[in-house]
Structure formats: structure tokens, C-alpha cells
């Protein structure tokens, strides 16, 4: 159980990143490659948030029930980084998908083996 306590989140998110990397390396459909990039994105975000977790910590917000800063909060810095990373991630996925649409219009296929040349 101690092994799970230490490795569940970190190991799970690293496995998620590796699955995404495997998808990027082996899939031949362009949309499948973009889906794999999305999986890697989620894995990295989860890894960053889990690095800032503290056992028994509270959510980093002052409320009427947690009124002072002497309490044990979790690290708010990775959360702020991940918050911006998610919004950037969706914009980049949309940009990639627009390029996929253009490639489909020009080549009439999504398989990367069959795309010949860059006739944009």
C-alpha cells in the first residue's frame, strides 16, 4: 500500500504520457496523432499538479472555514502554471485540427503514408 501511496499519481501520469508518445510514434491517422498529443497534454498537467500535493493539505483558498495563512496549504504555484497550460493546450489542438482539415482537403486522405509532398 505504501508503494501505491507513493507511485499512484506520479506513475499513472507518466504512464499516460508514455501511452500518448507511443500513439504519436505508431499511429498513421492524423486525427489519431492529435488525440495522442491530447493524452500527453493531460498526463503532463496531472503530473505537475501531483508534484505540488502535500499530505493533509488544504485547497489554497482562504474561506470562512479556513480563515488564516498558518494552515497547511498545498503548493499553489503548479496549479497556476497548469491553469494556463490547459487553455494553451486547447488552442494548439484547434490549430492542429485546422491544419488537418486543410491537409484532407488537398490530399483527400488522412493516412500519413499516402500523403505525397507538401502541395499546400
Amino acid at each position: 500500500m505504501a508503494f501505491l501511496n507513493q507511485w499512484a499519481y506520479i506513475g499513472g501520469s507518466i504512464i499516460l504520457i508514455l501511452i500518448g508518445l507511443f500513439g504519436v510514434l505508431t499511429r498513421r491517422n492524423l486525427i489519431k496523432i492529435v488525440v495522442s498529443i491530447g493524452i500527453m497534454d493531460t498526463g503532463v498537467n496531472l503530473l505537475l499538479v501531483s508534484l505540488g500535493y502535500i499530505n493533509g493539505g488544504l485547497a489554497p483558498i482562504l474561506t470562512a472555514t479556513n480563515p488564516t495563512n498558518n494552515l497547511n496549504f498545498v503548493d499553489p504555484l503548479p496549479q497556476a502554471l497548469v491553469l494556463t497550460a490547459i487553455v494553451i493546450g486547447v488552442a494548439i489542438l484547434a490549430l492542429a485540427l485546422s491544419i488537418v482539415i486543410k491537409i484532407y482537403e488537398n490530399n483527400n486522405t488522412l493516412q500519413i503514408d499516402e500523403i505525397r509532398g507538401l502541395k499546400l
Binding site: P60, I61, L62, T63, A64, N66, P67, T68, N69, N70, F73, P76, L77, Q79, A80, L83, T84
Partner: peptide, 22 residues
């Protein structure tokens, strides 16, 4: 020391730490 609903004028006055960082 900061106390909710009492402390005045800390350097970044939002109750949500993530907001005050962003």
C-alpha cells in the same frame, strides 16, 4: 498573519492564492 475578513491591505489582496499568482 492574514485572517479572512479582517486583515486589511496585504500585498496581493485576493483570498484565492491561485488568482493572486496568475
Amino acid at each position: 498573519q492574514i485572517i479572512y475578513n479582517e486583515s486589511k491591505n496585504p500585498e496581493s489582496g485576493s483570498a484565492n492564492y491561485v488568482t493572486s499568482i496568475i
